[in-house]
């Protein structure tokens, strides 16, 4: 059985992935309108406050989910949920940088065994270094 404290000591808060993004207005509009969004700052690229929806920001977290040397825990990671905290509007057509680290690791014991939860945090910055948003992805692994 993997020791959660050992995993935390070894892996928490170490950046393991960095990726640049440029968001396109077209995709932002489609993601917003299909979600039922009506506010012009999310569906009208000509609006002076046009920006990405919080849900769209969570899509940026897909890709490499765990550090390359993270131990196999037995099961396939499942997407247990997502969270986003917005600090400033995220605009299209500018260079964005996402920096990813493991924010938390914890377990829950159930009748079918132990489930391990891993919170992968992506912090999104613009070119000036302003922190625009943080997204958390909760991976759930049923230990084998």
């Amino acid at each position: 059985m993997v020791d959660i404290d050992d995993l935390k000591t070894q892996y928490l808060n170490n950046e393991f992935d960095r990726k640049d993004f440029i968001l396109s207005s077209d995709r932002l509009v489609i993601a917003a309108t299909t979600s039922g969004e009506k506010r012009p700052q999310y569906v009208d690229p000509d609006h002076p406050d046009f920006q990405a929806t919080p849900a769209f920001l969570c899509s940026l977290a897909s890709g490499r989910h765990l550090p390359i040397d993270f131990p196999a825990l037995g099961g396939v990671p499942m997407d247990g949920g997502k969270a986003v905290e917005c600090f400033a509007p995220v605009r299209p057509d500018i260079k964005l940088t996402g920096k990813t680290h493991l924010h938390d690791i914890y377990d829950k014991k159930g009748r079918s065994g132990r489930m391990i939860f891993i919170v992968v945090r992506l912090e999104l910055f613009d070119e000036s270094g302003e922190h625009l948003a943080t997204t958390d992805s909760r991976l759930v692994i049923r230990e084998k």
Binding site: S35, E37, K38, R39, A55, C58
Partner: peptide, 18 residues
Amino acid sequence: PGIMGMGFLTSAIHSWAP
């Protein structure tokens, strides 16, 4: 998609609180 569920929730919020 799971995050579309989040999109539905934020749209519901914006509809309630423009």
